[in-house]
Nucleic acid binder design. Sequence first.
DNA 1: AATGAATGAGCGTTCATTCAT
DNA 2: TATGAATGAACGCTCATTCAT
Lengths: 223, 223, 223, 223
Amino acid sequence: MARSKKNPRRKPVQGRAQATVDAILEATAQVLLEEGYADLTTNAVAKRAGVSVGSLYQYFGNKDALIGELVRRHVGAMRDAFLETLPGVVGLPKAEAFALIGDALLQAHRVDPALNQVLHGQLPRVGGLAAIDAFDTELEQLAAQVLRARGMRSDNPELAARVLTRSLSGLMRATIRREPKLLDEPAFLEEVTLLMDLYLEPPERYQSLAFAQARASGDDIAS
Amino acid sequence: MARSKKNPRRKPVQGRAQATVDAILEATAQVLLEEGYADLTTNAVAKRAGVSVGSLYQYFGNKDALIGELVRRHVGAMRDAFLETLPGVVGLPKAEAFALIGDALLQAHRVDPALNQVLHGQLPRVGGLAAIDAFDTELEQLAAQVLRARGMRSDNPELAARVLTRSLSGLMRATIRREPKLLDEPAFLEEVTLLMDLYLEPPERYQSLAFAQARASGDDIAS
Amino acid sequence: MARSKKNPRRKPVQGRAQATVDAILEATAQVLLEEGYADLTTNAVAKRAGVSVGSLYQYFGNKDALIGELVRRHVGAMRDAFLETLPGVVGLPKAEAFALIGDALLQAHRVDPALNQVLHGQLPRVGGLAAIDAFDTELEQLAAQVLRARGMRSDNPELAARVLTRSLSGLMRATIRREPKLLDEPAFLEEVTLLMDLYLEPPERYQSLAFAQARASGDDIAS
Amino acid sequence: MARSKKNPRRKPVQGRAQATVDAILEATAQVLLEEGYADLTTNAVAKRAGVSVGSLYQYFGNKDALIGELVRRHVGAMRDAFLETLPGVVGLPKAEAFALIGDALLQAHRVDPALNQVLHGQLPRVGGLAAIDAFDTELEQLAAQVLRARGMRSDNPELAARVLTRSLSGLMRATIRREPKLLDEPAFLEEVTLLMDLYLEPPERYQSLAFAQARASGDDIAS
DNA sequence: AATGAATGAGCGTTCATTCAT
DNA sequence: TATGAATGAACGCTCATTCAT
């Protein structure tokens, strides 16, 4: 009985292949995390994945493609984590919306922060890292879109979007590298939200040209 | 009198050695810039510097030491560029002080931005990169010091300092990578200053506990 | 029964690997013999073995391990050659036993005498040479055992064993280096046996304390 | 005044040169002893000798010549130590003569035994080691001469000389390597003398053809 | 002479990639 | 298809030797 003639395995090949690909990528991440990029050899990855190097090259044309796919998946996961909370923003009052967006950004950076760090910090700038830039660009455009939609920073929403996005991404990457635990403290989200909030909705006196005047207003802040 | 006949030769030995060291570091930067880290071989560096590999190893114990020194010099130059404008800040009114600090930060990141990018983006996180972290830390501490001195963000000056410093550094690095020309546009400095200004001197309603209430105030910002 | 249909392939993988390993070791010996230790490079060995360096390193972790294994095999062959004739010694009258042991020693040193010489004379005292010392120690212990078993040189069988073993080994090594053909002449074996015989069974007058008196007996041997 | 025209430095150059040469050779021995042959670089030797590499090459054409001279001096010292006691042998009774010769051989091997060991064990068989073989040959010839002069082992004094000389040299080298302290124990000299004594003056029954008969005599020596 | 910075051939070793099985 | 032994270009680094000063 069992296992007899008619084994109804559906898409057995594809299923197997998918599992192999996943195992390889998982192994890649593990090696990267535990041994570092310097020890990320295709042979090490294959061994850890429990397949032969030959198989690895069946699914990934070369080492770059392997890394590229790992990056793509990681960025994809960040993207998903971010976008998941975004639809709820529509219709929310500003303050809550900002808090939500800040939180979404945080959630995105909580996706495997260790891998995130290795990916940003150890990888030579070979092919596959393009995915990261693509995500960053997407974030910038999304931000600009939101600003325009709400009529905020109407003087130059694009610039504001880029400045804000890059600042917050940089803030999170640096925090991941230098102080990863901070990412989970409520105070950190509070600051992120505050930064967004203030930067995007400056008191009137800071708006546009008023800015230049403010510079000359001369409140002493010296020590 | 004195310095009469025999004095012209100025430490010829040291001069030679210094020139060789400089040539090697210059070549390292060039190879990094033109070929990328993947092609940064000690032989390639030596050839481009017009010296033999042996000479390279006379001055740098190994490849890591070479890269380390390059990083150290670059960071040192950034540090100098930054600190140069800083003393003038004491005694200035807040708005001007912020603008100056923002400008100093910008000046620091205008030091060989292409190298800056390669250093941040392509280098495996080996030895010498510690200098970068050291500089970042220094900036954070400097910022915290300024905040405490001026009594700003007194609720948590350390956190504010870290958030602001990391944000601005990240902003500049991302801008260098993605849009280097923006670094030189006055509007960019304006934004940087604005960000600092607002974040550090939020209107009263945002201060401390008031923050939580503000979140619930409910101005609609949705699209 | 059994062994019916499918059995012809005898561990083809292991066979291939074994053949490669043997070829590499053979090549190592050849290079050592024909070019000397100074030209014993891993690339030269691989080329002569008809494999790539990579394969060499698949089987030998480093150059030392390669040499070590060569030494181990050579010493093993000497050991086998020696031990082969030893069991027959039990029960033999002394004179025949000595002749047999002497012959066994000779047989051991007839195992690739040229390699023996190179191994003893050219190799830096790195790792693998430990096998040689181990064999020498084994010989010493064996000799001591025999002496004790037969009650010979009962005054100090250990010392006698060491002196005799080292003398004979040294004699053979020097002869291999300086006059290899002598190893195969019957007269040489005769001398070896004589030396053993006399040293181990000295006439009474030499025994123990008698020795000191003999020194004073005063037969003139001067020229 | 002083140091004026006529500076009476006699052979100052030669004296300086000699001192330099000595310092270099001394440094060579030290490096060999403390660091091993693998770390015996010309630069290391020069540094330790307190001279420049250039000077080293002024006096020694290449590394081989340097090692060669060191070997030559070491062997020369051994030769001196040996020959020093030899003249006294003439006219002595056999037993005393043997003891004296054995002691001379010991004295020779007590000349820097550590260096002796390194020289024999670590050096690749490059040029200069010829001096060792020359000394060994000399010893063999000396021994043959003595045997002929005293009419000992008249059946084949040359063979006996070679066998004895090589045995004793081998014994001493092995002892230096494996048990250096034994070299200074009186019991060791006693054994050396005993070996010489017995081997060169075998009881009649062992002489020449009698030997073959002895082999068949059949005393049981089995365990 | 003496110096020591400079040279560069060549070493041991790695690892992305291939291909016979 | 999957395997993993085999490949070999290329790397980081050393050190005997040279030569401008």
